Amino acid sequence: MRFLKDLFGIFYPNLCLNCENNLFHNEKTLCVNCKNELPIIKDKLFNTPFFLANNNLQDFVSFLYYRKDNITQKIIHELKYYDREDVGDFLGNWFSYELSNSKRFTDIDYVIPVPLHKKKLKKRGYNQVSSFAKSLAKNLNSNYNEGKLVRVSNSKTQTKKSRFDRYSESSSKFKLIDTAFFENKHVLLVDDVITTGATIESCINALNATKDIKISVATMAYTSKD
């Protein structure tokens, strides 16, 4: 069996997503060296950004700093555009471990990914946030749900838009299908990268149609100005 695995590895090598060196048998997605280069946001910096501070959030956390041309940007780009859903699972499991050490999110009832519009979902084939959110739900012993919060308007990629344009175009893009489903529940809203917070805020506005809902937010990465 080991021989067959080694033979398979010759034709289909398991490479680090960042440096493209061969991964050892105990490594997944990233080699140890690249994993150590990830710009992790430490627990003391897990504070709600000023642009979300007035949304009555229970808690907010981000795992990595996202900067132009850094390793975070590269691996999330692979996740988003090149079918590397293993990145979401890899980051979700690691982030869950960090959260368990910080005693955060111990009472989450549902984990909800920020949804894609159905046209974009059909074109891409998957929601890049789903694997990350599913890993968080599993490790937090909570339920995963991606059917109640839906995106009702489609838009072109936000990558090259200014911060103001992203914010102004994100209003009223989401709708909650069942306003009673999350009643008296604590939900964790999950996204990949947070920049202006416009998308998250629009999702929160939709979720707040529910009575006595508690909302927290977790993202893979937070855009740094540095």
Rank of each mutant, 00 (worst) to 15 (best):
D6A: 08
R163W: 10
S130K: 10
S155E: 06
Y97D: 13
V111T: 06
S171K: 13
K68W: 11
K5G: 01
L121I: 05
M1F: 05
S216Q: 09
R104G: 10
M1N: 08
E20G: 04
N22R: 14
F50R: 14
I41F: 04
I204G: 04
T159D: 06
K5D: 10
L176I: 11
N26P: 00
G197D: 06
C19E: 13
G9F: 06
S168C: 07
D109W: 02
L57Y: 04
S96R: 01
E37N: 11
L4P: 02
N127A: 08
Y65W: 12
S162M: 03
R166W: 09
V32P: 00
L30V: 03
Y66N: 05
N18E: 13
S162G: 03
I71K: 07
F46Y: 14
D226V: 11
A209R: 09
D165M: 12
R151W: 15
I76P: 04
E169T: 14
D178V: 00
N139M: 10
I200W: 01
L23D: 02
I40E: 05
C34T: 03
S162P: 04
F105D: 01
N141M: 13
L79D: 05
L15S: 00
A133F: 03
I200D: 03
S224K: 15
K123D: 12
N208T: 13
D86S: 09
